[in-house]
Write a protein that binds this DNA or RNA. Structure first.
Lengths: 158, 158
DNA sequence: AGCATTATGTTGAGTCCTCAACATTGTCTG
DNA sequence: CAGACAATGTTGAGGACTCAACATAATGCT
């Protein structure tokens, strides 16, 4: 019953696993070495920097940085220790917490960004042709759409 | 001086980040839930199962499962607790250790595989066209080649 | 209003990973 | 052969993540 992978699929899958792991490990190591933060934290700082007033509700930040609430909560606690982010209480929802990027946080991000972007370029964009970049974009958008939809399309009653 | 990402590249990169994270988180969660092991351990068992006598030197296993020696050492210790893998000393190299897949380990892998493959299919291969799978394969092979080569091609003395 | 349900965010325990340091053994060179 | 060097694998500390449980506050229903 199992739809096993055939030879081509097997190879494609292993290339996917290998390349993805290599790219992320490499970027993560560079970021940790050069900026003292893991990639997940960089992402959080980026999302905050893009938000109005560089502040977001925890839940909104969790959505945008593709993080669980728990992970984000731990991460923001850590970021607070560096004084890169500060928590504020939310005026209109007493449950809410607002994470705000500090000036120091913004500077840390600004310092980290050029090196990181250079890494992304050299490890991902430079090796690929413009056409491949377009293909990869379409492919990833497709995967995102497929996975973001929790809908079960395999069994529609009727 | 920084070669920042333009709008298209930015979008492509975020789709890549998002899709990759979603795919791996999903597969990892499924594997943990259904088979009680993280994906990295699944990989290790797979590589061992493919090896002659289902055994490999630690260093060879580390290479094939794209793992650091340290990570592998910790992981094999953990796998030994489940009696899925056993360590043996290496006859021709006293530094060496051989990791051998036990019968129980093979059975655990056999039990985990169908569900995992189904996950890979449904989250990755099913949403994509055959053409896209080919494209993705080529792209990942390119990235692998680029990153596996530590060669610095930016500055050749001359 | 009263009560159950849902949403928000945090916490702690446990797991996995990284990094640097280390002990041991093999290899190479003078 | 001796001594430097390289390779193998392990260890421990510390960081990041997951999961389940929780406290608190908002919402919805009757």
């Amino acid at each position: 019953m199992t739809r096993w992978l055939n030879e081509d699929e097997q190879q494609a899958w292993r290339a996917y696993l290998g390349a993805t792991r290599l790219v992320f490990d490499q970027l993560d190591r560079e970021l940790q070495r050069d900026a003292g933060m893991p990639h997940a934290y960089y992402e959080i700082l980026v999302r905050l920097s893009e938000a109005p007033d560089r502040a977001l509700r925890m839940s909104a930040l969790a959505d945008r940085s593709q993080s669980s609430r728990s992970r984000l909560s731990h991460a923001v606690s850590r970021l607070e220790e560096n004084d890169w982010v500060r928590r504020e209480s939310c005026p209109d929802d007493k449950r809410g917490q607002i994470a705000r990027l500090t000036d120091a946080g913004f500077e840390a991000l600004a310092a980290a960004a050029p090196g990181h972007v250079e890494g992304v370029r050299s490890h991902v964009f430079d090796p690929l042709t413009p056409e491949q970049v377009r293909q990869l974009h379409t492919i990833n958008q497709t995967l995102l759409d497929a996975l973001a939809q929790p809908a079960d399309t395999t069994a529609v009653p009727g």
